[in-house]
Write a protein that binds this DNA or RNA. Structure first.
Length: 406
RNA sequence: UGAUUCUAUUGC
């Protein structure tokens, strides 16, 4: 455990054993994984005090920690700092930044990093291109990703494509419902003996979402015939697919058949099923699943709570939802933006506007930014009560926050 | 001895 690691670290210091860069990097990396990037960054000072010079790996680890926490701008500052200190960023450093910027939809900045690395004499590698392609797909520019893909396949002087290069594009196309194109890319992979379970998982999900059960089942058979072992992804993708097609009984069947393959249902499976059961009015069954989770050693997470809280509120059971919220806090789970959103939405619909406004206040106090959906819920609630003045206040607040209704 | 990229869940 990380706690034990920290203890050992302190013991080292007490015994006069000096930690080296690697010791620090390990600690900082693990702090980042726990979301403690602030503490991790502070360790740079600790290193300086001991006269230890952070190297590329140390800086890169921190940059990754910042990026994974959605702080690409701060990560860029750290890049500047490391360069100032005379540390040369590696391909990995640049790749991490490209990934972080893409995740925040800063594609233009990601391209700038690409240019920067080339200027500094680095050759973008297959990870660089895979990362960029994924960024483009997630920002609605699958066609641009396709251009990169085609260039890579045509011009051998780029990089040698790998399984992920293909899968990024299959995923991008599949998410847009462009399944014929996705299947074509998949065929190209198979020709290269790049066949793998992830591609099948993506395609099975894509076909199910498109309502093409036959095609999805054909792929499932192929998976088995080819000797691939379906994994948790395969199951949760299918369970979700069937749930979304309102075929809950098939989803339940898959859920119970996982054990036969040595797999246990994951949080994804429980959460998906609970959401569907709530939506279909089977709150009691959802609640039973929720209870089952702890017994199955699959402890509910924020998503589970959000789902079941929404279900109980929708059914008009305010008391249970408040109890659940308390349970969640007691378990040490922090509410997320959707927890607040769920509460505001349901309270507004029930005409409990004071409750809704109080949740909004708590949300803002927790540093979350209310989105258009939340304002929409509140406005609808207020207008059904004819609270004209409040509506105007809220519209002003929205304008000030730059939130636009869609 | 330490750093990067693929597939799954919640409100409308």
């Amino acid at each position: 455990s990380f706690h034990r690691g920290k203890e050992l670290f302190n013991e080292m210091l007490e015994k006069g054993i000096s930690p080296n860069v690697v010791t620090y990097t390990c600690l900082m990396h693990n702090l980042c994984k726990l979301g403690q990037w602030k503490e991790a960054t502070a360790m740079l000072d600790g290193m300086a005090e001991r006269g230890i010079r952070p190297d590329v790996v140390a800086y890169t680890g921190l940059i990754d920690g910042l990026c994974k926490d959605g702080r690409a701008t701060e990560a860029m500052e750290l890049l500047t700092l490391m360069i100032e200190k005379g540390e040369e960023p590696s391909n990995i450093t640049y790749n991490i930044l490209i990934n972080g910027l893409c995740k925040e939809e800063l594609i233009t900045d990601a391209y700038k990093i690409l240019e920067m690395m080339i200027e500094k004499g680095k050759r973008p590698d297959v990870v660089t291109y895979n990362t960029l392609m994924k960024g483009l797909c997630n920002n609605g520019d699958v066609d641009e990703a396709m251009k990169f893909f085609n260039s890579i396949l045509k011009d051998k002087s780029y990089v040698e494509p790998d399984v992920m290069t293909f899968n990024m594009l299959i995923q991008g196309l599949s998410k847009e419902g462009r399944l014929d194109e996705a299947a074509k890319i998949h065929h190209k992979m198979v020709e290269r003996s790049f066949g793998n379970l992830v591609s099948y998982n993506i395609l099975i999900g894509g076909y199910l979402k498109a309502g093409n059960i036959d095609k999805a089942m054909e792929l499932w058979k192929q998976v088995l015939d080819l000797g691939f072992i379906p994994d948790s992804f395969t199951y949760s993708i299918m369970i979700d697919g069937f749930c979304k097609m309102h075929m809950v009984s098939i989803a339940k069947g898959l859920f119970s058949k996982m054990g036969a393959r040595g797999l246990s249902p994951t949080l994804f499976d429980y959460n998906t099923l609970m959401a569907t059961l709530c939506k279909e009015g089977s709150l009691e069954q959802a609640k039973r699943l929720f209870q089952e989770m702890s017994n199955a050693k699959c402890e509910p997470d924020v998503v589970s709570f959000n789902t079941i809280i929404d279900g109980t509120l929708k059914a008009g059971d305010c008391q249970s939802s408040k109890d659940l919220l308390m349970d969640m806090l007691q378990m040490g789970l922090a509410p997320d933006a959707l927890t607040f959103s769920t509460l505001i939405n349901r309270f507004s619909k029930r005409g409990q506007l004071d409750e809704a406004k109080s949740v909004l206040g708590r949300m803002v106090a927790c540093d979350f930014t209310p989105d258009a959906f939340i304002y929409d819920s509140l406005l609808k609630g207020l207008s059904s009560k004819g609270e004209t003045e409040e509506i105007i206040n809220l519209l002003h607040q929205m304008a000030a926050e730059g939130v636009v209704l869609d």
